[in-house]
Computed example of a mutant assay.
Amino acid sequence: MKYFWVTVGLLAGCSAPYNVPTDNLGRPISSVKIEVTTIETPDLDAEEPGSRYVVRRGDTLFSIAWRFEQDPDVLKRRNQLTSDLIRPGQALKLRGEVPPEPEPEPKTNTTVKTSPTIRAEPEPERKPPVLEKPAPQLKKREESRPSPKATPVPQMTGWQWPVNGPILKRYSSKTRSSRSLQLGGEAGTPVKAAASGRVVYAGDGLVGFGNLVIISHKGKFLSAYGHNQSLGVKVGDVVQRGQVIAAMGSTGTDRVKLHFEIRRQGRPIDPVSLMPKRKS
């Protein structure tokens, strides 16, 4: 009987998918196959081959680019997106080949080339001049229709300080968290847009920034305003330099302050280099 019992034990041990601790003998064993498709922590290394990010509710293309310090235009081209719109559950590649930038200029030139061909037709010239006048008038009306549909992007008219509070911590390139300015002030102090642009993110989905506003500017600049008490703008809003966009607070941090950061093509730069000199 002992020999029969030992044989069964050995067969059971060989058939097990992995070594089972002695204290779990007699309990059902289940093996789970795990497939990792994304890393949800802020420590995700975007340089790792095959890295990708799964879009979550509240994300925007610009907030994802900001989180992983990438150029939004490059991220857009790498994933072959035709617009800035993304949807929850969509997987975005953070590394890989990037198609070249499309050239929109020849498209506009082709439309312009069609107009002179119509003017060069010999037949309307033989007809009375009355028939020639309504044709260009109709074309001018059609060309003026698409212009009001597209909201104009405000031109850069310079930079200004978002608040007048003191600089608590200056820009430094040593660490990722220090590549910004930390500005002091009282809770509720109006936070103003440092330059004209369009709001591309407004929310609290980026860990460590609290209530955050990101504005896109001409010249591929992005400016960010974090730790706000409340937000006064939403994604898609066009703002002018000096317009109030938020109120200072302490969300995501230990004291009232403003996290002020500027990036160009995904790379942080010292905001002081763009701001007017302060009177001291």
Rank of each mutant, 00 (worst) to 15 (best):
I214F: 12
P99V: 02
V233S: 01
N19R: 14
A120W: 04
V238R: 15
Q160H: 03
G188M: 08
S230A: 13
G249A: 08
T41V: 01
K192L: 13
Q80T: 03
L206E: 00
N79S: 09
Q155I: 00
Q137R: 15
T7W: 14
P122W: 06
R267K: 15
V213K: 04
D237K: 10
S177P: 00
R119I: 02
P129E: 05
S250V: 00
T111K: 14
I39S: 08
H227F: 15
L131V: 06
R126Y: 14
K139G: 09
T110S: 11
D59E: 07
E125G: 11
G226P: 02
Y225P: 01
I167E: 07
I29V: 09
E69C: 06
A120Q: 08
R52S: 13
N164R: 15
V238N: 04
K107G: 11
S31N: 08
N211G: 07
D270C: 02
L85A: 15
I34C: 08
W159R: 12
N79F: 06
L206Q: 09
G219L: 05
G96K: 15
T22W: 12
T60P: 02
P100S: 10
H259N: 03
T7V: 07
V112C: 09
V256P: 00
P268E: 02
D84M: 07
L10W: 02
A202Q: 02
N164G: 14
Q265P: 00
G185V: 03
L206F: 01
I39R: 13
V20T: 08
E35W: 10
S223Q: 02
L222W: 11
L138T: 01
A224W: 00
H259A: 02
Q70H: 14
S178H: 08
E186M: 08
R255Y: 10
S144A: 13
G226V: 05
Q70R: 14
P268Y: 03
T37D: 04
E48P: 00
E125V: 05
Q70D: 03
Y225I: 00
I269M: 11
G232Y: 07
S223Y: 05
V239K: 00
A135N: 08
R67K: 15
V239T: 04
A195F: 11
V239H: 00
L85E: 12
R176Y: 12
R52E: 11
Y201A: 05
I39M: 08
K139S: 07
S51Q: 10
A224R: 00
P276I: 03
S30P: 01
V36T: 09
D71H: 07
G26W: 04
R56H: 13
K93V: 01
E48H: 13
T111M: 12
T111H: 10
N211D: 09
P102K: 15
E132V: 04
P42Y: 10
G188P: 03
R77Q: 12
H259Q: 07
S216G: 05
L10T: 04
K93S: 14
V55G: 06
N228L: 12
T175A: 12
I262A: 01
K277E: 11
P49T: 03
P162R: 05
E47Q: 13
E69G: 07
S216W: 12
R95S: 11
P99R: 10
I64K: 07
E40D: 10
V20H: 09
V272L: 12
R241V: 02
Q155T: 05
T82I: 05
K174T: 07
G13L: 12
L11Y: 05
